[in-house]
Amino acid sequence: MKVSFKLNGRPVEVDVEPNEILLDTLRLKLGVTSVKRGCERGECGVCTVLLDGEPAYSCLLLTAQVEGREVVTVEGLRGDELAEKIARSLVEQGAVQCGFCTPGFILTIYAGLKKGLIKNVEDAKKLIEGNLCRCTGYLKILKAVEKLLA
């Protein structure tokens, strides 16, 4: 079946199976490799995308579900001032180690700041609950957000 949606600002049309998940469509058909395959059951957050501006797990979305909607990954945020600031802050605080979780964190933090939902570190702590990082212990990630808020 054909599914059309907006990916990183550009309209795309893909031919998918009804049981195809967005994660596979993005990685295998559209070459979007910042979206990672992790737990595949909505627990780890490495497959996070922005769906109409809010973070969602691409492993728990059928591609057919995003018909007519807008999907954003970090590829689409290249050159975006806020996203670049977030990335820089994460790097400066040493919050990027293996890097596997980083695109997901950037998207969640980006959406949180963009929507005004992150006003302090406590807000950030709450909103990144759905992104796991096994390297940093989160302190450096939160420190990076704190620096952005300062």
Binding site: G42, G45, E54, A56, G130
Partner: peptide, 9 residues
């Protein structure tokens, strides 16, 4: 409940 990614869907 759950996480932002789940609650938004």
């Amino acid at each position: 409940m759950a996480s932002w990614q789940i609650r938004s869907v």
